[in-house]
Design a protein around this nucleic acid. Structure first.
Lengths: 326, 326
DNA sequence: CTGTTAGCGCTTTCAT
DNA sequence: ATGAAAGCGCTAACAG
């Protein structure tokens, strides 16, 4: 018992005793069992669950890093679950995190169905959404200015004289993709241009799929003179198609896309990118979670205390130009 | 009690009762508390700790993905801890993972001091090292063929006629860096060339540092005609220095490096890279851990049963050539 | 087949 | 300032 007090820095211990305990603990290499602690304390396990679709995508790894940097400061740890786009895996993962009594969940849901997250929230596990808004339940969330960023990038292409601008994006179920499509469409409308469905290709998740889709667009009878891509996977894929076209003597095609990425300056092609701080996205999500944990007390369902209303943070975007000169 | 049995799929339950329990559980949205389970079972927490220095480096995120893909199949989860090169943070992290009773730890230690990992292993938590061999204690490990890969890449530069080849690498404390330096040196020796210390720069961790170091080498009175870099951060940094030199009318400098990376084919510069399957590195590490968990039983210190000897897996490398044509 | 007892390692409460 | 008792949610071992 006294040992327990010492190791928790309870002041109610005689300094001499404390030292003896400390010495003994050190000698034995003793560390308290965190599993037993969290069981007794009734709080969560001191873990924050992070649910992403693909850690290999730098967007998600930066996000994870941002989350972890804040989470660690609160003495918690991050459990990363990778779902690989599989909705079933995501459901299982979330349920398991809840069973493990994580203190909170930060998720970038893959699809539109968020009932599993709603269930987690209902069981008293605070949920923060990153990059997608909550659907059908209340939760904090951190968004990127998808609409604005896409709008600005597209508008810039228009201002440079492009009238036929293709769109490459993720599957329609992904919120960011559709928001960015909206931004693209709005910029066209504002310029008095119609959205030509034949120039819109949604559904590419990996660069090679995007290369294929871009090549399709560029092979049309009336091909676009510029492409706007809704994420880094599509931009990289489209880049390869454009480069191939150019090296086979075809016309220059302008390229713009959402997400900045490493080596974007080195591709030998002018490139307009919508940049934002993806670490900050993670940090902001973790901060929202921390606030909520402080407000409601970790682990327990809201016990009487007033629940703060859901908050939403929007991370701003900016346009970056890469000259592509060599 | 009966409920407990049902939810554990214990066959000793009347089918009718089982259904009633299942129905009740579903109705209540009941899920067993994993924290309590692991406390009672005495096993670990069903978590595998992964310790890396920088998740934003694609090498580590791929590794993490590989680890997770295998770990999940065994019904476990991965806790990722990012240490940001800080040895102190790494010590704390490992101690904390042990206190959380993770079933095992997979680590890519940042420095040469591995006493914290040895301590974890001594407490009965199986440790698997990735990309560095254990120092001063027994543990399974997965290595890349650092020496061979570096040797082959350097030899190829030599065969192309280069006689002054610079080396850019990580701090000397990093095992891979020194092994790769050895491979570089061996290839030079084999060709009758001496290692010129003025052409060796160790210590760069981030691309911008590598750019600086490469620029230094290229500004020497007798500059190298080729550079070999011991990891992707250095290769990318060196690339920028070489590109800058070229665009200011300087000579062409050949570039080779360890680690393949996305867009390496798109840099407009010929590039020789040492490629290997970094997902496989993670998967292999996780498999080693799984084997050991099956052998010793999770959580408990080796209780009498014979402990299998440490195993070592080496992931092979291959050379990849990127033409860099535009 | 189902229920009772006991205890995993810790901490809160209540003595002393 | 220290210790004894009880219990967090679960399950192994033993009844019934």
């Amino acid at each position: 018992m006294t040992a327990s007090r010492v190791l928790r820095d309870d002041p109610q211990v005689l300094p001499a005793t404390r030292e003896r305990v400390r010495a003994a603990a050190a000698a034995l290499g003793y560390r308290p069992n965190e599993v037993a602690r969290s069981l007794r304390l009734g709080r969560g396990s001191g873990l924050v669950g992070l649910v992403v679709t693909n850690l290999a995508n730098p967007f998600y790894s930066r996000l994870a890093l941002g989350v972890d940097s804040v989470v660690v400061k609160d003495g918690l740890k991050t459990v990363i679950g990778n779902t690989g786009q599989d909705p079933h895996a995501e459901r299982e993962l979330v349920a398991d995190l809840v069973a493990r009594r994580v203190d909170g969940i930060i998720a970038v849901p893959a699809g539109a169905d968020q009932r599993h997250l709603a269930a987690a929230a209902a069981e008293g596990v605070p949920v923060v959404l990153a990059s997608r808004p909550p659907e059908g339940f209340a939760a904090d969330c951190v968004l990127v200015d998808d609409f604005g960023g896409a709008h600005d990038a597209t508008a810039r292409l228009v201002r440079r004289g492009h009238r036929r601008i293709g769109f490459l994006g993720s599957p329609p179920a992904v919120h960011t993709g559709t928001e960015r499509l909206r931004g693209y469409a709005a910029a066209l409308s504002a310029a008095g241009l119609a959205v030509d469905d034949r120039l819109v290709r949604q559904g590419q998740t990996e660069p090679h799929e995007a290369t294929r889709a871009a090549a399709d667009l560029l092979a049309l009878r009336e091909p676009p003179t510029a492409l706007f891509c809704s994420n880094n996977r599509n931009t990289i894929g489209a880049f390869r198609a454009i480069r191939a076209l150019r090296s086979s003597g075809g016309p220059e095609v302008a390229l713009a896309g959402f997400d900045d990425f490493e080596l974007a300056d080195a591709l030998g092609l002018p490139l307009t990118l919508v940049a934002y701080d993806s670490d900050e996205l993670g940090r902001a999500a973790a901060r929202l979670l921390a606030t909520r944990l402080n407000a409601t007390g970790p682990g327990t369902a809201t016990r009487g205390r007033p629940v703060p209303p859901p908050r939403q943070v929007v991370v701003p975007t900016s346009l970056v130009e890469y000259e592509g000169g060599r």
